[in-house]
């Protein structure tokens, strides 16, 4: 599988923001590779740094307050250090993005047809008006909008949430990008519409062969869509695994806590839900050592190591499972297997 060509390489990405309260360390030392046609999921709760990561890949973070280090390589260009013009050439053509809230992602002042056309024209300045129009209709048909010729002249507010998300997808895919970043693409939608949108994205992936980076808090969505998964906590990847391994034998205490909370919701029996005690840490003031240690029931098993030393991402458990935890392999797998059942 990994013999396929990498389309996105992220090396040691760190992003911090200057705020009036201090420096927020949103992403810390993140590395991963996305291959052609692959679907990689990033899962995490609010404040885990997953959305900041998404924005960094296209250099969409606020250029005044954000500081990014490391490398993000798309089509041979380091997005973090390239000139504005070079990055602009990549945006929308090599790498495109679908946002969380389709209600606010479209410009309310222009028709949807215009907004799709605009995305195409900026990378195809030579296209004639007729070609552009044909492309707009083609994309609208592709994403399943009925009466595209008529609806192209309507404004975003005249569409339902699901239809708007289809338009956003049409805009993202109009230039056949190799990478699609989907940042919580279905979170704002109803379940039945969510199912439609996920199906659509997967169908289009089969057609275009693009790689999808799916960012979500919903493990159900991850289970249905992703092949590999990064679990993020407080700006770091705590686990990196094949999706089936992750759900079967999570190799990080946070992952199994997260899975446990969801899994116990799925079963019908009422009773006490498994939870992770406490709340995620403030990114202004991260805990020392492993950021998860204040909420981890096993931190004490390692003496003071968890509170002083940041664990590295190393292989634990199954072949493709990497996790950042000081616990011995056997102990983690033991814990993980309890959850897997």
């Amino acid at each position: 599988m990994s013999s396929q060509k990498p389309v996105l390489i992220v090396e040691n990405l760190s992003v911090s923001f200057a705020t009036p309260d201090g420096i927020v360390h949103a992403v810390n030392d993140l590395s991963f590779v996305l291959h052609e046609g692959e679907t990689l999921g990033i899962v995490g709760e609010s404040g885990s740094g997953k959305s900041v990561t998404a924005a960094s890949l296209m250099r969409l973070n606020n250029s005044v307050t954000a500081t990014s280090t490391g490398r993000v390589v798309v089509a041979g260009v380091d997005v973090l250090s390239a000139s504005e013009a070079d990055v602009r050439r990549l945006r929308g053509s090599e790498i495109a993005m679908v946002f969380q809230d389709p209600m606010s992602a479209l410009n309310p002042y222009y028709t949807v047809g215009y907004q799709i056309a605009e995305a195409y024209e900026v990378h195809h300045p030579e296209a004639s008006k007729a070609q552009v129009n044909a492309k707009v209709l083609e994309m609208m048909t592709k994403v399943g909008i009925p009466n595209p010729a008529q609806r192209a002249d309507e404004y975003p507010h005249q569409f339902s949430g699901g239809m708007r998300q289809r338009i956003v997808i049409a805009i993202a895919l109009v230039n056949d990008p190799k990478i699609l970043i989907a940042d919580e693409p279905t979170t704002a939608l109803d379940v039945t519409v969510q199912a439609q949108i996920l199906d659509l994205m997967l169908a289009l992936q089969v057609e275009n062969g693009m790689a999808i980076l799916l960012i979500t808090h919903d493990l159900g969505v991850i289970a249905e869509v992703a092949r590999d998964v990064l679990v993020m906590y407080a700006g770091r990847v705590v686990e990196k695994a094949d999706v089936e391994d992750l759900f079967e034998i999570p190799t990080h205490p946070y992952s199994w806590g997260l899975l446990g909370a969801v899994a116990s919701l799925e079963v019908s029996s009422r009773g006490h839900l498994r939870t992770i005690e406490g709340t995620p840490p403030s990114l202004l003031n991260l805990p020392s050592g492993c950021a998860f240690h204040p909420r981890c029931s096993f931190a004490s098993e390692n003496g003071s190591r968890c509170t002083t030393e940041t664990p590295l991402l190393v292989q634990k458990g199954p072949k493709h499972s990497f996790s950042a935890c000081h616990l011995p392999v056997e102990r983690i797998v033991e814990i993980g297997q309890k959850v897997g059942n």
Binding site: V191, A223, F247
Partner: peptide
């Protein structure tokens, strides 16, 4: 339909 649309957190059911 509503029940069937809920994503199942089990990749084996995919």
């Amino acid at each position: 339909a509503l029940l069937s649309a809920v994503p199942v957190p089990n990749p084996k059911m995919r």
